[in-house]
Structures are given as structure tokens and as C-alpha cells.
Nucleic acid binder design. Structure first.
Length: 541
RNA sequence: CACCCUAUCGUCUAGUCCGGUCAGGACACCAGGUUUUCAUCCUGGCAACACGGGUUCGAAUCCCGUUGGGGUGACCA
């Protein structure tokens, strides 16, 4: 039997890392078993679904290298792969359930339902819908009001017991289940109905999804049973937590922005002034009534705070490598056993199995991701890394955007070991394009510039470099080692550190010779004399 | 609050199913080495079986309870 798995996002926003991990595990399983991967868009929430979101999600999946064998735009035996294009099929099966008595029409409005929930607040178990009887007069009245009924599926009379591929035997007691909606008032199926019908018709053999769906599985199994279909196997994967514990969610961004605002002593009024956003929105935001990402981003930008990456897009923008994110994600809730961690795609595919998926939620440790990204960065050949950086700045901007490859190349190989992300690499190189206007830290300045005859020495070095007839790493090295031997008792630090400060503004940079020739001779001479000038001016020492 | 899931270093985890190197690796952190600075790299260190009962010659590993954590409780998926 061919194994078939699916990833079924709803196109209502960006691809979340949790979603990416779900897609990843499904694909790893499929590739390991030589099966087929299906991508299906669950766009039954008409109000929230969008084409842009669909494109963004597909783009991020592709960026991660998570491909699919069947899906929208590629087709396949289960086509179409957008639920909004499969309405007839759902309707058919809803009708079948209606006919067999497994489902029935329910006429309560959302408001009435909410009122019923409200009323059930105090009860031990909370609200559970139970089937209502309607008199002919009531029905007539509802129709006159223009109400459209929903269709509810009758709950299983007995406990739902199934063997989960990850968790083992799971029991959802009947007392926990109630009659759930399978067809909405707008004629669209709910998730429960659509998922079951599609998984069945698309030949899905294994449903691997997050543990938050555990109870939904009980509902889905009920539908399979009522329809007389063989259900697929289910496996529920552990959740991904933020470092604080709790599902990693978009709200984490709002949380960070709020904390930053408070730490800076802001109130809604001052925030409105700062961001130009309406004050009532900010009031709601700060009171945690609103968690808008745009609001969070606006505040963070003004305050210069980094928001935590949550969506795949965020990680892309921060300069992570797809292979690093994939490797990291594969280790969240799964391990190949033993001591293996740094793995390539095929190695991971070969090692993957459901019984090695962990049962407990994993916290998302960005520090480890950063480290892993650095490892993957250094695994790349220099040429490959250069290409990644060029593509990266092309898309997301940076100091190196539009800069000639003949300049980018040497710089990147210089910084290869000094950055964990593409963004950091680009940031690190900023000094090449902008001469320093100030120098620091103070302690280093004191030691390398102001102490003794340092400034005079720097001046001499400038003169020596300026007199070179050939501008190359070798000629610079020859000249400076000679100078070091003759005038600094061979102490390289006396030469390198002042030069670093003069050229970059800080005492930290890659090896000194390549650092020097990263700039033109004229630029080096200019920066050195500017530095000497700066500190000769008595106000700076 | 109810139900369900779950429990090894701060974090990700190996070991648990088939009890007998009481615990391995990695991130982070600390110390040292290499290095003209930084980084890379190398070496070493710190650090965990939630608790309480059982079962057993012997339990991280099996059973029960407690506590902790999380999920769910939509005409969202």
C-alpha cells in the first residue's frame, strides 16, 4: 500500500513554524516510506482565507525545500486541492449523513448558542450542545426570519478509543463529546467534515498533526464510522512551545512589544505619538485586548526592539538558512537516537520513523537554532555562501545590496566564521561602506590610541601604507611586519589594533591584512588620518 | 472548572517497550588552549531521572497516587 500523507494549511496568514514542523514530519515520513505527499488548502473560512496567504505559505514551504507530489497548481488524482472547489462533495456526504440519521439540522443562531454557553458557565462540565426539538411553528418562524440551519453530526454514544501512532492508546470519553457542526450556515463545511471527506477521497493513509487536534480526532473518527469508511491512522505530534512555556504563537510578538513599551515608560498616549497609530488601538493593545502584529511591529521598530521570529517568513527575513531551520525543526519532538544532530536532508529521511517522535512539547530555543545556522553556514562552500548572501540582500535588503560580487566575495569569505546568520554577515560588513564617525569602546581607545606614542605610530603607519606602490594583502603585510619588527619590538598588536580602530571604529575585525585591503588605498589613508585628526583634537582625549 | 495528554541537566534530547555502566550527546554558561583583536577550532568543567508509595535481590526504566506543565472546551482550522 502506498503511504499518503498531507499537509493541509488554512490560508489565513503566514506559515507558522509549528505548521512547518507538521509539514516536515509528514514529508519525512512519506519520503522514508516512498509514499506520496499531498498539499491541500483548507479555505473553508471564507472571511479569513486569502490568495496572498496561500501564495505566502506555498512560497515558504518551497523555500524550506518541503515539496509535495499532489496539490493545487500541480494536480493529482484527488484534484481539486482547494476545499472551496470541493463543496459539492461535502454536500453530498452531509446529505448522506442527514439521510441515515447520523446528522440533523439545528436552528440556533450564534447568539443563542453563546447565550447557552453563558448559561452553562457554572456547570461542572461546561457547555455541551444537546439536540433540540422544534415545533412546526418554531420552524416556520425560523424560516420567516430567514435563518439558515446548520447541520450537526450526532456524537458517538460510546467512548472513542484509538491507537495513536505517537501516543499509543487514547481514550476520549463519550461524556466529553457532543453533537458538532459539520455544515455551516453559509453552506460551507466545517473543518471536521471537509477533512474527513478529503482525507478519504484523497487516499490519505496517515494523518500526522499536532496534539491540539487530539479531541478533533474523536469527532473525525465518528464521521468515518457513520459514513462506513476505513479511517486513516492518526499520529499526534508534540506542540512547540516558546521559551516561556505555552504554545508558540503570534501573540508572542505582541507580548514582547508590550514589555518593551512598558520598559521604556510608554503609555498609549506616548505610543500614539511615537507610532502615529490611533490611541484607542494602542489602549486596547496595551490592555491585551488586541494582539495585532502590525501594532507590535510598529512599536518594536520605533523602540529598536527585535520581535521574536514566529512565522517561517520571520526566520527567512532574519537570515536563517532553510536547511538549518529544517534540521532544527526535525529535532523538535523527534530524534534519530544516539548522538546525531547535524544532519542533511537525506540522512534525516533515512533515519525518520514515527516511533521515535517524542510525546512531550519542546521549547523553541533560538540560541540553538542560531548555533546550528552557523554550522550550516560554515558547511557551505564560499561560492555558495556568496550566492546565498547576494540572494538574501536582494530580497531583504542590506549593506551588500547591489554591491558588485567582486567586492562581496572577499568580504564574505572574511566573515564566514564570524556570523551565525546571513543578516549578521551583512551587518558585520557595514564599516566597509561607511567610515566610522566615532570610535569605541572607551577602554580600547585608551589602550590602543591614547596611550604613549600610539597616535604618532598610527600616523606613521598611515604614511607607510600611503606610500605603497602596490595595493595587495602581500605588500601590506610585508610593509607592516617590517615596521613592527623595527619600531614595535615585533608586537603586532601595537600596529593592528590602532589600525582596526581607525578603519572600522572598533578594535574587532577579521585578520588585519585582508581587513586593510578590503578598502582602497586612498580610503585607508583617509580613514587613518581622519582618526589621527579626531584624537589630536583635544576634546576627544 | 471539566476532560484529555504529559513529566531525564536552564533548553533540545539518548537511555524506558525487553528493569542490573543512576545517567550519554548537543545548545547555553564557566575555565583553559590556539590567535595581532574578534570569531572559528580544541580541551576541560558545571548541571537532570518532579515527589511519595509500592513490585523486585535490584527501577530513570514496571504499577498506583500526588504535584507540576500543557492542550481542548468556535457556524477557526
Amino acid at each position: 500500500m502506498t503511504i499518503r500523507c498531507r499537509f493541509a494549511p488554512s490560508p489565513t496568514g503566514q506559515l507558522h513554524v509549528g505548521g512547518a514542523r507538521t509539514a516536515l514530519f509528514n514529508l519525512l515520513y512519506v519520503r522514508n516510506k516512498g509514499g506520496k505527499m499531498v498539499l491541500r488548502l483548507e479555505d473553508t473560512d471564507v472571511a479569513r482565507s486569502s490568495k496572498e496567504s496561500e501564495e505566502a505559505i506555498c512560497s515558504d514551504l518551497q523555500w524550506l525545500g518541503l515539496d509535495w507530489d499532489e496539490g493545487p497548481n500541480v494536480g493529482g488524482p484527488g484534484a481539486p486541492y482547494r476545499q472551496s472547489q470541493r463543496l459539492g462533495l461535502y454536500r453530498e456526504n452531509v446529505d448522506a449523513l442527514l439521510k441515515s440519521g447520523g446528522a440533523y439540522y439545528a436552528w440556533e443562531s450564534s447568539d443563542e448558542l453563546n447565550a447557552m454557553r453563558e448559561a452553562a458557565q457554572g456547570s461542572v462540565q461546561g457547555f455541551r450542545y444537546s439536540r433540540q426539538e422544534y415545533s412546526d411553528e418554531q420552524l416556520a418562524q425560523y424560516r420567516d426570519e430567514g435563518r439558515t440551519p446548520v447541520v450537526r453530526c450526532s456524537a458517538s454514544p460510546g467512548d472513542i478509543v484509538f491507537v495513536d501512532e505517537v501516543l499509543g492508546e487514547i481514550t476520549i470519553p463519550a461524556s466529553d463529546l457532543d453533537d458538532f457542526i459539520i455544515l455551516k450556515g453559509d453552506g460551507y463545511p466545517t473543518y471536521h467534515m471537509a477533512v474527513v471527506v478529503d482525507d478519504h477521497h484523497m487516499g490519505v493513509t496517515h494523518v500526522l498533526r499536532a496534539q491540539e487536534h487530539l479531541k478533533n480526532t474523536a469527532r473525525h473518527l465518528r464521521i468515518y464510522d457513520l459514513l462506513g469508511w476505513e479511517p486513516p491512522k492518526h499520529g499526534h505530534m508534540p506542540l512547540i512551545f516558546s521559551m516561556e512555556g505555552g504554545k508558540m504563537s503570534k501573540r508572542d510578538k505582541a507580548k514582547v512589544a508590550r514589555a518593551a513599551a512598558r520598559a521604556n515608560g510608554h503609555n498609549p498616549e506616548s505610543l500614539a505619538l511615537l507610532t502615529g497609530l490611533p490611541e484607542d488601538l494602542l489602549v486596547r493593545f496595551m490592555k491585551k485586548k488586541d494582539h495585532g502584529i502590525d501594532t507590535a511591529v510598529a512599536i518594536a521598530n520605533k523602540l529598536g526592539v527585535e520581535l521574536p521570529e514566529i512565522d517561517v517568513r520571520d526566520f527567512r527575513e532574519s537570515g536563517y538558512l532553510p536547511e538549518a531551520l529544517v534540521n532544527f525543526l526535525s529535532l523538535l519532538g523527534w530524534s534519530p537516537g544516539g548522538d546525531r544532530e547535524i544532519m542533511g536532508w537525506q540522512e534525516t529521511v533515512d533515519a525518520f520513523s514515527l516511533d521515535r517522535i517524542v510525546k512531550t512539547a519542546a521549547k523553541f530555543d533560538r540560541e540553538k537554532l542560531r548555533w546550528l545556522n552557523g554550522v550550516k553556514l560554515r558547511e557551505l562552500s564560499v561560492d555558495e555562501l556568496i550566492e546565498r548572501v547576494v540572494n538574501y540582500v536582494e530580497q531583504w535588503g542590506g549593506n551588500l545590496k547591489g554591491v558588485d560580487v567582486s567586492i562581496v566575495g572577499p568580504l564574505i569569505s572574511l566573515y564566514r566564521e564570524r556570523g551565525q546568520t546571513l543578516r549578521e554577515l551583512d551587518d558585520a560588513v557595514a564599516w566597509v561602506f561607511t567610515a566610522p564617525t566615532e570610535y569605541g569602546p572607551a577602554k580600547a581607545i585608551k589602550k590602543h590610541i591614547l596611550k604613549g606614542d600610539s597616535l604618532e605610530r598610527l600616523s606613521k603607519i598611515g604614511a607607510i601604507l600611503g606610500s605603497l606602490s602596490e595595493w595587495s594583502e602581500v605588500s601590506v603585510e610585508t610593509a607592516l611586519t617590517a615596521f613592527t619588527e623595527n619600531e614595535c619590538e615585533g608586537k603586532m598588536g601595537k600596529v593592528a589594533q590602532p589600525v582596526r580602530i581607525a578603519l572600522t571604529g572598533s578594535p574587532v575585525s577579521p585578520s588585519i591584512y585582508p581587513t586593510i585591503v578590503s578598502l582602497s588605498q586612498a580610503e585607508v589613508v583617509g580613514r587613518i588620518s581622519a582618526c589621527v585628526q579626531y584624537f589630536t583634537d583635544s576634546s576627544h582625549n
